[in-house]
Structure formats: C-alpha cells, structure tokens
C-alpha cells in the first residue's frame, strides 16, 4: 500500500468489500448508479446474493417514477437474483394492472388479500406454483368486483382447473414493478 495519495484504484476493490458495500445500497442505486460506474463495478453489481432481497421503494433519490422504467428495473432485479430471490419489496400502486407470482409458497394470505383488494384496476393476475395462496386468491376474486380483470393465470403443481378457471400453460409470465409495501414476502425458489 505504498502508493501515491491519489492512485488508489477504487475500481478494483476486493470482492469482500464490494459485496458488503453494494449490499448496503438499494436495487435502484445498484441498477442506475453504482452498477454503471465502470466495468468491475458492473460485474460486482451482478453478484446474485445482492438480489436475494430486492427493495424498490427509494424513488425520490433518483426521481424515477415512470412505471415502465420501474417495471424494467424490477425485471432486471429478478433476473439478477438468478433464482435466489427471497424478498421483494416495492411500492404499492392503486393503478397496478398486472401481478405475477412464481413459486411464491410463503406469501401470507392476509397480506395477499389485503393487497389485491386495493388494486381495483387489476387486469392480469398470474399465480404460478404458489401453493395455498391461490385458493385465497380465488375466494377474493370471485367475491369482489374487478371490472378490468382480463386474464387470470393459474398454474399449480396439480395442473388442474380450479373453480371453473382453465389453467393455461405456456403463457409468458409477467413481473410487475409495483408491488406492495405491506411486507408481502415471497420465497422464490425457481424462476
């Protein structure tokens, strides 16, 4: 470390340091800030463990409010988790139109019911391999009015229709950025 004062190479930190520093940053900061600084920071920002818990509520810092941008970032965050996503926390929007949960076995039914009931404009719900939450979802959806609902995709391990809904297979999945801040936690084992 006998270096002249200004020659420290901040682009080449040890992985231990990157992994601790980047874990202290939110998803948006990693995707829009630190991850775009240079080659080695970009690659450090792709460490899958950084994406086990994705939190996308710090919108003010970067003034990013465009839903499409948020949606793309959420997708990128899920991609980067490389199947290790354990928690996703975003910001609830009453204008939410699409919701897709894949392999989310431990979504709390109360949280899900409360959340979906606050989304009157929902058009598209997909629950893929989500365990028992699907039955609560069906109860809510059949009992409430969702005038905009156009598609409800359900795939379970049992691969059978439920309550008269067909179970379509092979439809592309959608992950939406606007997700509840109400502590809905997902365990996403496979993506």
């Amino acid at each position: 470390m006998l270096l002249p004062p200004e020659s420290r190479d901040w682009s080449e930190l040890p992985m231990d340091a990157f992994s601790v520093i980047f874990a202290k940053l939110g998803a948006i900061e990693l995707l829009m800030g630190a991850g775009l600084v240079c080659h080695s920071w970009l690659h450090a920002a792709k460490l899958p463990h950084l994406w086990q818990c994705v939190e996308m509520v710090r919108l003010e810092a970067l003034s990013l409010k465009e839903p499409i941008v948020m949606s793309e970032m959420a997708r990128a965050a899920v991609d980067r988790s490389d199947g290790r996503l354990e928690a996703f926390e975003g910001q609830w929007s009453p204008k939410l139109k699409r919701l897709c949960l894949v392999s989310c076995y431990s979504v709390y039914k109360e949280a899900f019911i409360e959340f979906i009931a606050k989304c009157p404009l929902i058009e598209d719900i997909a629950l893929i391999n989500c365990g028992s939450v699907v039955f609560h979802a069906l109860n809510v959806i059949t009992g409430k009015s969702f005038p905009q609902l156009k598609r409800f995709e359900l795939r379970t391990a049992f691969e059978r229709p439920c309550y008269g809904f067909d179970v379509p297979l092979g439809i592309p999945t959608v992950v939406d950025a606007t997700y509840p801040a109400s502590k809905v936690r997902q365990d996403q084992d496979t993506y």
Partner: peptide, 19 residues
Amino acid sequence: IKGKTPEEIRTAFGIEYDL
C-alpha cells in the same frame, strides 16, 4: 455512493469510465 449518478460516483472516487 448513495443518491449519486454514475458520473458523480466516478468523480467522487476518481474512477475512469471503462465500460
């Protein structure tokens, strides 16, 4: 790092753009 754009981060740490 927090709240900065990539360019501001580069300036703060003296990092060259090498993407």
